[in-house]
Design a protein around this nucleic acid. Structure first.
Lengths: 290, 290
DNA sequence: CCCTGTGATGCCGCACGGGCATCACAGACG
DNA sequence: CGTCTGTGATGCCCGTGCGGCATCACAGGG
């Protein structure tokens, strides 16, 4: 079927995001008339109108909404294809492992050690990520594998093995009354007057509704807790980054958190498969020790 | 990052599949020199060699192998984007539901009736598929939703709800001694002298190794069973298409088969969501009746 | 040694992507 | 009510780059 060129997809996305031909054109580095014509050609090729231009404004049609979303992911797919090929052809063999800074620290340490001991395995390059970044990095070909956490991360387009399952703790400011408790429940934690739970970016970039502060980095989060502004519930093993001003209190009825070794669906390359085996082995031996 | 154009991806895939510039060029409808140069430009843009041309043959490099696989899926993504946009802009509102011909017949009937009764729901267009086709149709934007079956279908890139779970039966030729049995076990079924289980296409288009005949359509399969050439194990509800020459025998220890209402990951459009709700409702009421 | 089959190069034309100038039209404003 | 401003569409032209044709370079095979 007559596809669109990636150039055309980029043009459409630019216009659809800005709803303004002139600004889109200048951002794209071309002149506005060229862009106007390009969009007309796209609409003709697709066969349905994508934009409503009544004077003083451009709006997306239903088809345009769909194409905007689809085009973004299609473009990501193309970028991912090129990036993966580039990486596959790179002279140095390595596996890029995306991990959340501070999470599953002991496991990561053991995994790195075990991988280093395996002389025939590819060296690991650890990529420290902020909250919610990992999925994108896997999908766009920047990373080969990741240490993820259920139910926190988005696993769409990712497959993997469940490793450890662990209880969760609430991280509360040391100055708060809750800090002296030996254990908590979800109900207690989610309805603390003056101490709303922080919200992090959803899939798609927005934030859920709610009273808590919007954060996107772990350091932000750590500081907000230390300042007595928020509290959060995280897996026990993620405590590595806690400050002196933080106190961790077990939350008895919180859903169990699972550490997952994941890779992009259908992209279990030999090197990643080897690392996966190492991860499973490390997890096994850790379970035996415990 | 400087992506490749879809035209370039198509060119590369053509060459990589045929490992022959001349034939690829003529299949693409362009002349060979143009293709040679296009590939050179692609290699330069990607930055790594993709093809080994020693005289008397073209071979893929490791990076080329990766790009071939990735480019195929990226191109599918672009086609899917356009197809979905086109469908979203179509004047008639409808949901394309991909089902395996003959499977889950009663449920499908009930679902269609329930949807027809829901005046504000989009009409359903049923798309009858052969074995293993549904995943592709969902992913490439040709279908909006599907009735799938675990553990038969490939669910990569698809999310959905489990509906019914049911036992499986062996379909054996009426003339075969096994046909007189009241029940069977997997061990008995998988090692029948002269009656190997049929094999259907795997995810990549090939077939698993084994003695059984290779089939890709249900009618083939039905006929082969009737001819006494093969036997198969399928969910009980898929019996609708059985012939007089078939006999269904319960397989006691076969894994349970699950009927799934699925849609492409992240593409739960309002109309599909509505149909999903209907499917869940139909399943509920069927469970109550049973 | 020539012929055949292969991909690479040289050269050239033309279509199309893109730039500039301008138009057409709707609000905002004095 | 006229003018100005901001918007996308059109007219027109140009240059680049895609692709065609002819040819080369090279390896096997008879």
């Amino acid at each position: 079927m007559d596809d669109l060129e990636t150039r055309e997809l980029r043009y459409f996305v630019a216009v659809a995001e800005r709803l303004h031909f002139g600004r889109a054109a200048s951002d794209l580095g071309i002149a506005q008339p060229a862009l106007s014509r390009a969009i007309q050609q796209i609409e003709q090729r697709v066969g349905v109108p994508l934009l409503d231009r009544d004077r003083r404004g451009v709006r997306l049609t239903a088809a345009g909404e769909v194409l905007l979303r689809e085009a973004r992911t299609a473009l990501d797919g193309v970028s991912a294809a090129v990036r993966r090929a580039r990486r596959a052809g790179a002279p140095v063999r390595k596996v890029v492992l995306a991990t959340k800074a501070g999470s599953s620290h002991e496991f990561l340490q053991a995994l790195l050690d075990a991988n280093a001991a395996d002389k025939s395995a590819a060296p690991i390059e650890v990529m420290l990520c902020e909250i919610g970044e990992q999925q994108g990095l896997l999908l766009d070909g920047s990373a080969d594998a990741a240490i993820l956490h259920r139910p926190f991360d988005d696993f769409a387009g990712i497959e993997g093995d469940d490793l450890d399952t662990e209880a969760q703790v609430a991280i509360v400011p040391a100055s708060h009354p809750l800090a002296s408790r030996l254990s908590l429940t979800m109900v207690e934690v989610t309805h603390v007057p003056g101490l709303p739970m922080a919200r992090w970016p959803l899939v798609g970039g927005g934030y859920a509704d709610g009273p808590g502060p919007e954060v996107h980095s772990q350091s932000q989060l750590a500081q907000l807790v230390a300042l007595g502004q928020t509290l959060l519930v995280i897996p026990r093993s993620s405590r590595a980054w806690q400050w002196p001003e933080h106190v961790a209190v077990p939350v008895l009825d919180a859903p169990l958190a699972t550490t997952v070794f994941g890779w992009p669906t259908g992209r279990l390359t030999p090197d990643v498969a080897r690392l996966r085996a190492t991860a499973l082995r490390v997890h096994e031996s850790a379970a035996l020790t415990a």
